[in-house]
Design a binder for these strands. Structure first.
Lengths: 194, 194
DNA sequence: GAGTCCTAGCTAACTCGTTAGTTAGTCTAC
DNA sequence: GTAGACTAACTAACGAGTTAGCTAGGACTC
């Protein structure tokens, strides 16, 4: 056999690292705690991953990939997309925190991957919205996309607004999702200009 | 004279601490760096503020107070309010990061202050929106308020979306502010239900 | 089929720079 | 000569990263 059970150990480390980084960020995370939670020796972290930093980068990339895999973008159903993003964000609070930490603690990160995904979505939205334009243009796709993401994640664990300010709303995800979808529909139909 | 120039030193420490915490968070901040930036001895930090944690809490409270002081809430002009929040967020990237760090690193923080502000705004919105309701109710004020904040700050330095994904938009604040105002107007006018 | 070597997977214990927090004392003005 | 503002130097612990070595089992030799 090629690998023995080292792959299982790696997986356990990545899982423990995800939890630790999600809870404490890069600077606050403790390598010893990760090793203990993974039930293995600290040195293995340095054998399998080179440093705390690269371990974080690995965890982040692995989890970002999950986002892109699980969230299909539907340019012709933006409210539905927002609802799915909302569900995903509520179902994965740890992942949302991880992304927030990365945004604060890392300079740039893997801009390439994210920019490609962004451009693809913008292009798809432009293609889907070539129907008639009345007086005043629609809001720009690039703007609309960010607005959708901001709205859909405003009640996630990583947001300073939603869950902290109105815990009552966050406790009722179904109506919250409906309200987000309604709001996105309103923005998508909105026209700018006089 | 009562105080000598210790007040000036305290102010320099708070300023240096704001910058350090804003850049690195609580766990990543270094007390020695703060002292050096403030041009004073490290021990003074512990004399004037008790610990790193309470220094952070002091910095946060002082700056949150600025937010509440400088941002007048206008329930009858929500797009205008959103535009002002946007301007404030763009003008104070360090403060936005500070709030983001606080949300991630602290358990609860000063819930009382924020909850009071939130309730006051919700009540003001309800009072301002007692005109006729057509078929389908308006979106709940509590929801609308969080949505506005999420939209208005989506391009701030602390957001994982706006500035990182579409730096082009962030470079043109005037149209961005207009788009945010339009979007908020659309949501505020939106009705929910069938 | 016993002895020896080798490798993958793993661990205990260590190093050493860093860091929050402290102590003891200096200096200046009144 | 005392009190307020401040400093240099210290301490104790922590924490990332390292070293040296253990153990099980396969394989190869005779």
């Amino acid at each position: 056999m090629a690998t023995g059970n080292s792959e299982a150990t790696k997986a356990r480390i990545l899982e423990a690292a995800r939890d630790e980084f999600s809870a404490h960020g890069i600077a606050g995370a403790r390598v010893d705690r990760i090793a203990k939670a993974a039930g293995c020796n600290k040195n293995l972290l340095y054998i399998y991953f080179q440093s705390k930093e690269t371990l974080f980068a690995t965890v982040l990339e692995q989890n970002l990939r999950r986002v892109y895999d699980e969230l299909r973008f539907t340019p012709d159903d933006l409210p539905g997309y927002a609802a799915r993003v909302f569900d995903f964000a509520m179902a994965n609070p740890g992942l949302m925190r991880l992304m927030a930490w990365a945004g604060l603690e890392q300079e740039a990160g893997d801009v390439a991957l994210r920019n490609a995904a962004q451009s693809a979505k913008v292009a798809a939205m432009e293609a889907a919205a070539h129907d008639a334009d009345g007086p005043g243009a629609r809001l720009a796709p690039e703007f609309l996309l960010t607005a959708i993401l901001a709205l859909a994640t405003a009640w996630s664990a990583a947001s300073p607004f939603g869950p902290r300010l109105s815990p009552g709303l966050a406790a009722d995800p179904a109506t919250l999702r409906a309200q987000i979808a309604d709001a996105v529909a309103a923005i998508a139909a909105a026209r700018t200009g006089p």
